[in-house]
Amino acid sequence: MSDPIQKVSIIVSKGSLEGVYPALIMANGARAEGIEANLFFTFFGLDVVHRSTVDHIKVATVGNPGLHLATMAGGLPGVSSVMTHYLEKKMEKLDIPPIHEFVEMIADTGAGIYACKASTDLFELTRDDLIEQVMDIITVGEFYAMAAGGEIIFT
């Protein structure tokens, strides 16, 4: 048997519901297995740690062939909200927490939550714009230093 994984550093670059959940589930699952985990939110992934957007993460209904919905239909006003609501209901039944609660829970498991400096600069965000669970705004160099000796997962 191979050596068990000791540490994972997960980069979240997407701001859509289907882009965010896999990373959160993997981070939470890592901690549940006793694996050290850090989450690094960059680019549109910053929406997950931004106070004003964390409760409004939506499914991408355009340009998402996996949804099996015509692009024209996906672009109609409200379709993204309806699909998001539908998925959220299904996830609730499976005991998957809403994104905001999930991030809080993951922070409570002892995982590190970080925001990317280049992205916060780009979107002109400061520490005060971010949810309290964010430990720090860090550079890519600091991220690599933190990720040393572990696995890096990009989502």
Binding site: R31, A32, E33, G34, M105, D108, T109, G110
Partner: peptide, 15 residues
């Protein structure tokens, strides 16, 4: 609480 659970069982509370 979740926080306390991980302090009590550092290698994964449920497991």
């Amino acid at each position: 609480s979740v926080k306390e659970l991980y302090q009590l069982f550092p290698k994964g509370p449920a497991k």
